[in-house]
């Protein structure tokens, strides 16, 4: 397709990420024929940025595996309180690097599916694995009994994820859509309390998603600054606004329960995320 050739030129040197959305290609198809020629000369080299992001993602996955191991040990030894303590913070490593984790269509649901996701696909509890299944055990069943196998599977899946991250072709497109996707995650499931429906630890995921997007911005910041200083400044301000709001809900060990948030609180958080999302979606200007 024409757009593919455009992207290939734009993203010189990098291979289009696996799972590249084909409908996106269709929508840009009409415009691309004339553009490829005009943009050819302006395509910028983002190899250093791409490498930096991959390094970040691998580091996050390392820590995710380590923390998951601790979590699994706690679950298998029946230490409910300890497991509950590790649960939200271990998940943050996953949530920060979700654009990468998500590129494995099989592993992501095994680790991170919510019961609601399965039900949507016509599946039941029996097919449910991963963190949220154990979340259900810890907070609803109030037990770890019967969850040992799930815990073992979770650790195996985490390790597999860590190994496969090495193979991901990180591209500027993955970084830019990934940053916006992280915010969309916040807007659609974290701010509604639907991600952590039993533990109500949604604000941890919220924070981690923002940090993940912030990391991508930080890596690209110089390039954005060079192209549009106003955009860079605006993004810095909007990230700060979200982080300042989130800081209001920090506790000694983390964040307050989602259930403690009022309607006004969630509205203010959601709006701050939307106000960040609009300029964040403009990062693609550096590819012009």
């Amino acid at each position: 397709m024409k757009s593919k050739s455009l992207l290939a030129i734009l993203l010189a040197g990098s291979v289009i990420v696996t799972g590249c959305n084909s409908s996106d290609d269709e929508s840009t198809e009409k415009k691309s024929s004339t553009l490829a020629t005009t943009n050819e000369t302006t395509a910028i080299d983002l190899q250093a940025e791409v490498d930096a992001y991959k390094e970040f993602a691998i580091d996050q996955m390392d820590q995710f595996t380590t923390e998951t191991e601790k979590f699994v040990v706690a679950v298998k030894s029946g230490d409910i309180e300890k497991a509950k303590g590790i649960y939200p913070t271990a998940r943050m490593f996953f949530e920060r690097s979700e654009p990468i984790a998500e590129s494995f269509g099989d592993l992501d649901p095994r680790i991170d599916a919510r019961l609601a996701d399965l039900e949507e696909e016509g599946q039941g509890k029996e097919n449910w694995t991963g963190y949220h299944k154990i979340e259900y055990g810890l907070w609803v069943d109030n037990t770890t009994k019967g969850y040992e196998k799930i815990a073992d599977q979770l650790l195996a899946d985490s390790k597999e994820l860590r190994a496969r991250v090495e193979t991901v072709e990180v591209t500027p497109k993955l970084m830019m859509t990934g940053a916006v996707d992280l915010l969309n995650e916040v807007s659609t499931s974290k701010i509604t309390g639907e991600e952590e429906i039993f533990s109500h630890t949604d604000l941890y995921d919220f924070k981690a998603n923002i940090e993940g997007a912030d990391k991508i911005f930080t890596i690209l910041e110089d390039k954005i600054e060079a192209k549009d200083p106003e955009l860079a400044k605006n993004l810095t301000e909007k990230f700060k606004a979200v982080n300042d709001l989130l800081a209001k809900y920090e506790t000694k060990n983390g964040y307050v329960s989602y259930t403690e948030l009022t309607k006004e609180d969630t509205k203010a958080l959601a709006e701050a995320v939307n106000h960040l999302g609009e300029p964040l979606s403009q990062m693609g200007i550096i590819l012009e």
Partner: peptide, 9 residues
């Protein structure tokens, strides 16, 4: 005006 950059909305 019409878009020239498919990487932004």
């Amino acid at each position: 005006d019409s878009m020239t950059n498919g990487m932004i909305p």
